[in-house]
Amino acid sequence: MTYETDGRRLIDGIDLTVAPGETVGLVGPNGSGKTTLLRCVYGTLRPTGGRALLDGDDLAALTPKARARRVATVPQDGHLDVELTVREVVAMGRSPHKRFWEGDTAADAALADEALARVGVGDLARRAFPSLSGGERQRALVARALVQQPSLLVLDEPTNHLDIRHQLAVLGLVARESAATCLLALHDLNLAAYYCDRVYVLRAGRVVAAGPPAEVFTPALLAEVYGVAATVTRHPVTGAPVVVYLPDGGPDADPEADPDATVL
């Protein structure tokens, strides 16, 4: 898949596959193309080359409502300028499954209440959505995506604004408990290593590595892609890779190294 605008390729020839039931992560530095790729998948952008297919169907050829029945998304900013309650925003997830004149059923209400409880904002159901903190809004939008009951969940930095407890809870919910296939962008490599079956590493709009986190996350790759020195070990309990950054480049750092090199 390729996306070009103003003569500049933001993603360039990306070939990515997510198998049913998998959780696949996109990682890479700022500006590497993660958000652009996700927008091409969920329909905000139309690829200028290639296609995004879901079970063989071209997502760009579907109507917005048909696509929303199959793909749910949680965007990066979590902004909705609507004067609705949290529960009303979450219930919007049922809209793709209804005719425009149909109201919510008892089953719809039960789904919304269950999703609110699962993301830990059930007590905020009657609050005005704009009054929520960034983390509360993010969790409410995850609940709305779950209520859609999609086959594919697309999440762009779903842990934005969340404290550690809720980062783990939300990722556990979407990656481990949800029946949906998940494609998500993450900055935290340790979260990606634990929750993702496979990861794609992007740089300058291209895939530079792909595979299970244990194979992909190496000190050499982190130095090449992020410009950081790091060690990679295995967690003694989970067995997942654990990335530990060396902020000053470590004991063997080159004294002539760029002091502005990115540190996550």
Rank of each mutant, 00 (worst) to 15 (best):
G50W: 04
A106P: 06
D104W: 12
L152A: 01
W101R: 10
L171N: 05
H235S: 08
L26Q: 06
R139V: 11
T238Q: 09
V71G: 06
D12F: 10
Y195W: 12
V89T: 08
K98C: 00
D197I: 01
G7Y: 07
I164Q: 04
L191Q: 09
L132D: 11
E4H: 04
P247K: 13
P29Y: 03
S95W: 10
D254Y: 08
L221R: 05
R87C: 00
R87D: 10
Q148I: 10
R139D: 06
L38Q: 01
R127T: 06
V201W: 03
A230S: 14
T48Q: 07
R126D: 15
A192V: 13
T73S: 15
E22M: 13
P255A: 04
P259N: 12
R234F: 11
E157V: 07
V90H: 02
A204G: 06
A185F: 03
T48W: 06
R144Q: 15
G134D: 13
V89S: 02
I14C: 11
I14V: 15
R46W: 01
G50R: 10
Q167E: 09
R51N: 03
T218F: 08
S133Q: 14
K65W: 05
L53H: 13
A169Q: 14
A261H: 13
I11D: 00
I164W: 07
Y226R: 04
R118K: 11
P259F: 08
Q138W: 08
A223F: 02
P64Y: 10
A209K: 14
L59H: 04
G250T: 13
A253H: 14
E157Y: 06
A223D: 15
P150M: 00
K98I: 00
A66N: 07
L264I: 14
R137T: 13
G211N: 07
L16P: 05
Y226T: 09
R139P: 08
I11M: 02
Y3C: 01
M1K: 12
V142M: 11
P241H: 09
L264Y: 01
D123P: 00
K34A: 01
K65N: 09
G13F: 08
T218L: 10
E102L: 01
E88K: 00
E224W: 07
D15G: 06
Y200R: 12
G239R: 11
A169N: 03
L10K: 00
P219H: 06
